[in-house]
């Protein structure tokens, strides 16, 4: 029984069957990649995990609880964090404030009215946020305006924000999209490091085969809304069905 269990999920947008009968099981503490060509339904599937979309039929269970019908903030509080394709951060705030918001959300829950406390007096939150920044090698940029960060640093910051919540499952939506090779390699190293350091399950959606094969422990190949195969990277590499899906011809 995996930490994330997807059973018989269908999702239709008008005439397009985006997902048809998707079954997926992500084992706890694994790094599971979901790959597939453009339009295979990868992002749609991910949006079904985080509460942005509700599948027409089927079930999505996280740690034995259904995720369907829950709002994004509720799902996050259950222990699922998400990294976006283009980093979503608070660009008006400093790097430190960005991470502190995650720390507050982790400690105080979805809502707490605390208008007369002072951010500067929350020493444990500050300490925790500083530690997070150290983990992603951004401690020297703590007081920078996050809008002025490079793309790679924005990604690191977003990662730090997600990790500050100590999630059980981290969802990554093409974390290296649009990155230069060097940045991509940095991100791969960062993800490996995160995986080594903590008990965390990661589900990653990725285009870049280099990233997938250097990270994933298990791979699901999605094509036209249906999972084609699920296997280890070694077996996926030479799989005829995968080649067919990617190249569009029978090999």
């Amino acid at each position: 029984m995996g930490i994330l269990e997807v059973k018989g999920v269908n999702k239709r947008f008008g005439g397009l069957q985006a997902l048809s009968n998707v079954n997926l099981s992500v084992a706890e503490n694994s790094l599971h990649a979901i790959i597939g060509p453009n339009g295979a339904g990868k992002s749609t599937l991910l949006n079904c995990f985080v509460g942005k979309l509700i599948p027409d039929t089927g079930s999505v269970m996280f740690n034995g609880e259904s995720l369907l019908g829950r709002k994004p903030h509720e799902i996050n509080q259950m222990g699922i964090s998400r990294v976006f394709q283009t980093p979503e951060i608070f660009t008006d705030l400093t790097v430190m404030e960005n991470v502190m918001i995650s720390c507050f959300a982790h400690r105080d829950g979805a809502f707490r009215l605390h208008p007369f406390e002072t951010v500067a007096h929350e020493t444990d939150i500050i300490e925790q946020a500083e530690k997070m920044l150290l983990d992603v090698n951004m401690a020297d940029k703590r007081n920078m305006h996050s809008a002025s960060l490079s793309r790679g640093d924005k990604r690191r910051l977003e990662m730090a924000m997600c990790l500050a919540q100590e999630p059980r499952l981290l969802l990554l939506d093409e974390p290296t999209a649009g990155m230069a090779r060097a940045d991509t390699n940095n991100t791969i190293d960062l993800l490996k490091e995160i995986k080594e350091k903590r008990d965390i399950t990661m589900a990653i959606i990725e285009h870049d085969m280099h990233v997938v094969f250097s990270l994933a422990e298990r791979i699901t190949v999605l094509a036209q809304g249906t999972p084609l195969v699920e296997d280890t990277p070694e077996n996926i590499k030479g799989h005829p069905k995968v080649k067919e899906a990617y190249l569009g011809e029978t090999v």
């Binding site: 709002k71 903030h73 996050n76 509080q77 964090s81 976006f84 608070f90 660009t91 959300a105 924000m161």
Partner: peptide
């Protein structure tokens, strides 16, 4: 700044 991020950070 970013309501989407805030929602996905567990804040209502």
């Amino acid at each position: 700044t970013n309501q989407t991020r805030l929602n996905y950070t567990g804040i209502n």
